[in-house]
Design a binder for these strands. Structure first.
Lengths: 336, 336
DNA sequence: TTGAAAGCGATACCAA
DNA sequence: TTGGTATCGCTTTCAA
């Protein structure tokens, strides 16, 4: 079977109406008599008709799909629960609307294909997550005039783009203050990538708090937000600063790696070294001891970013950019 | 500014050629004089032209994109390293071709939207992963005549669909035999979902081997291939059969949960209870003790399925379905 | 409420 | 090698 897909013309013919009426009947049924509507619906059913999306969007100039853009080598995407939570909440927020979500990953480090896909307006809008300093996404999207919303502050064009974020610097301060308060005298950090706003801001919060307390802020190692990155960073950090008694780790996933290293070295958590993570995703509850961490409202952020994007899709003129910043919160468990 | 996107007509005008020539120049440049080609390329650049995909695919009847279909509630997708590996290898295999990969998840359990998307031929082909007994994907795709390939044997229409798989039953036998060989006398299993071929086949292999050895095969609990599912299954299994000394767990991820439960109960692995997992993804190396498991060539399968799909895309007539079955292999580590 | 007809922006055939 | 032109399948005025 699958010979040829029926067209709207055939539907109209079978229903005994014009193509125009058939079209109206299919799209909401406004200004169509009940009689004609029923006839068309019947015809659609018997013919197994489904509209050709190319033909449709050629005239409507809409694709009825939006992209979730993750400019990230795919290995990382699935290892990090952050993405799973985000995807899930985006998807959930889309439930009412008849929009298809298209997940776009930067294929093997080259973003050309990704940008081209967006340029061609294969989607009506884009949600950007895990944006890096040197990807050209913000610039590209603004130039394109494509509706978009970022999860996490864009590096450039931040005044022209709607985004949601948390106050990562405040989170870094909060974590560091907690370590100071529980008596740590030598506090290091496993920071995130410096090409991501979250990495930079959390580090700044840590540094600032130590400076205010008159402590040295030289014990820094950078991870890449992966568990293995946490392992490597912890190793080099402990190597250079064996006297550390507190660690602020810029993500829970990295903290898992860090805790593995501490365990290997026979260092007790929190007695020898106290550890504070960041994110409060499921990983945090499962570590031994349970991880004290800074809660990042990942789900709310994803949902809200999606809403910001959906709002733009209706409008013809781009609405003024909106910014939503969530406050972080300390979740105390057993590691600090 | 994103006023209006230039059309091919404008490009042609600027380049001083006809629309037909401009089109040829853009698509491969065959039968176009070097002079005309250069002029068009210039015009494209200065105008910032990119072709309208809707208009294009209206006539070519191709979308230049393929779907990775995951008929799975999204929570699970990201928790399982299986998907990450699959996605990554699919993506990698696509690197040479200028095809966009579109990830389609069944949104909150309803597959209607997903099937509709495929019906409309929004993609040129589909790769299906994690297919369940009661989803209508195989039937739907065959009915549609849409090129497709499955990772894992389809429940229906298996003779009309190309797919790759491993011999899961042989894997189940292999794992169980290993437990018998190391002296286990009372072997249970945490099986996978019975609505997935892999779940059923691995269980069958276990059962068959115990029967052949004259042992009881009544200690069965079902998990859903998640870590939490493994925890729950292990609890109920140990409750009912406290005398177990060997466990075949149908996925590494579930095995992680199972090992947590055993640890809680103070049961030593493998001394008190030997454990064999399935998949051999990264999780297996990280457990303590390291997990003995059955290796599933996930990467090769994904790559091969992608190739099977790509081959179909060229053809006008559907080529005969191809089936590739990989042999499983036991990877012995410390848990059994 | 209906239908005739004018596009939407490309590709591809065919004659030149 | 080129360009005129017929499509592709649908939505959307506009008159009736």
């Amino acid at each position: 079977m699958g010979a040829t897909t029926p067209t709207l013309d055939e539907v109209a013919q079978v229903a005994g109406v014009s193509r125009a009426t058939a079209s109206r009947a299919i799209n909401g049924g406004n200004r169509v008599s009940p009689r004609a509507l029923a006839a068309v619906e019947d015809a659609v059913r018997t013919l197994g008709y489904s509209p050709n999306p190319a033909a449709r969007s050629l005239v409507t100039r809409r694709t009825e799909s939006i992209a979730l853009v993750v400019p990230e080598p795919d290995e990382r995407v699935f290892a990090d629960p952050f993405f799973g939570h985000t995807l899930r909440n985006v998807n959930r927020t889309l439930d009412d609307r008849d929009l298809q979500l298209v997940l776009l990953l930067a294929r093997s480090g080259e973003e050309g294909r990704l940008l081209r896909y967006l340029s061609r307006r294969n989607v009506d809008g884009a949600l950007v997550v895990s944006h890096h300093r040197n990807d050209r996404l913000a610039e590209h999207l603004v130039g394109l005039g494509l509706p978009c919303a970022f999860v996490g502050r864009p590096w450039t064009h931040a005044d022209q783009i709607s985004y949601v974020d948390t106050d990562n610097q405040a989170g870094g301060r909060m974590a560091t203050r907690h370590l100071l308060d529980r008596g740590c005298r030598r506090i290091g950090t496993v920071a995130g990538s410096i090409d991501m706003a979250a990495g930079v801001d959390r580090l700044a919060g840590w540094r600032e708090t130590l400076a205010a307390a008159g402590q040295a802020s030289d014990a820094v190692a950078h991870g890449d937000f992966t568990e293995e990155g946490g392992v490597a960073a912890a190793r080099s950090l402990l190597q250079q600063h064996p006297d550390l008694d507190g660690l602020f780790v810029a993500s829970d996933l990295m903290a898992v790696g860090v805790m593995r290293v501490l365990a290997e070295r026979g260092l007790a958590i929190p007695r020898d070294v106290a550890v504070v993570g960041y994110d409060d995703l499921d990983a945090a509850e499962r570590t031994v001891p349970a991880l004290t961490t800074i809660r990042n409202p990942v789900g709310e952020m994803a949902e809200n970013a999606t809403r910001l994007l959906l709002e733009q899709l209706g409008q013809k003129a781009p609405p003024p950019p909106v910014r939503v910043i969530y406050p972080p919160a300390l979740v105390q468990r057993d590691s600090a």
